[in-house]
């Protein structure tokens, strides 16, 4: 900026938010703030892992108690939809990481494109989930607890399988929804020009969150769909 003369500076327009951004005043500088924010996000991710660990524990104990219900229940899921959703999420993790890189390099156009693709992948994941997985099961009565009315059960304990299935995928899907909200927020800020090489901590933090949501699915997919 400083190398430009006054006419060039006027032609360049007002400096972008990301270039003039100053760290909050209780931090020494932007690096100090960035490190702190990133550390905070990692701690938050640790809490997410522990939250899901409770669900994995639920899965493990119920599976130990009623293996036959889980073996049969798993065969009632269509692994192809699970696989497609896994691919969708993995691709979105790629674009999430690419968006961070774009912000770092100041590629504003590709930043917006990648943020948008990530958001749309979240939408696609939920559409697949609801239209091809949740809705047919709902219609057939493969529901948790007292709403369970599927007539062709094999094991009387299948209700536990559906309890695990709905609570684990439901908590995961709610995380996807939260992530989509965060990506809408990022998109709005990206269109306002908030991100650039000197300021991209929000992109990075949300991308980290999106990765953990992805990783949880990477574990849920084989546990629910593949292990027989």
């Amino acid at each position: 900026m400083s190398s430009l003369n006054i006419d060039q500076r006027i032609a360049a327009g007002p400096p972008a938010y990301a270039d003039t951004y100053k760290a909050a005043e209780h931090f020494r500088d932007k690096d100090h703030e960035f490190d702190s924010v990133k550390f905070g996000v990692w701690l938050f991710l640790a809490t997410e892992v522990l939250l899901f660990s409770g669900l994995f524990c639920y899965y493990g104990i119920m599976r130990l108690m009623y293996p036959e219900a889980f073996i049969h229940g798993s065969s009632l899921l269509d692994w192809r939809w699970g696989l497609i959703n896994t691919v969708v999420l993995l691709c979105s993790s790629f674009t999430a990481a690419a968006a961070v890189r774009d912000a770092q390099l100041g590629r504003q156009f590709w930043l917006k494109v990648n943020l948008l693709i990530t958001l749309l992948a979240g939408v696609a994941f939920l559409i697949i989930k609801f239209v091809f997985e949740y809705y047919p099961k709902w219609a057939e009565g493969k529901l948790p607890g007292e709403f369970y009315s599927y007539p062709n059960w094999v094991s009387p304990n299948e209700v536990h399988w559906w309890g695990v299935y709905w609570s684990a995928t439901g908590v995961h899907a709610s995380h996807v929804v939260v992530g989509m909200g965060l990506y809408i927020w990022l998109l709005i800020r990206a269109f306002k020009g908030h991100f650039g090489p000197k300021h991209y901590s929000a992109c990075e933090g949300v991308a980290l969150y999106w990765h953990i949501v992805d990783i949880v699915w990477i574990f849920l997919f084989p546990m629910l769909y593949l292990i027989h």
Partner: peptide
């Protein structure tokens, strides 16, 4: 976070009777 998921499961148990903690349904 662990009490978070525990209480969430308990709400599910109360509202939908998923059976995780209910011995009548084979829960623990």
């Amino acid at each position: 976070p662990v009490i978070g998921i525990t209480l969430l499961l308990m709400v599910l148990e109360r509202l939908f009777h998923v059976g995780i903690f209910d011995p009548r349904m084979g829960g623990d």
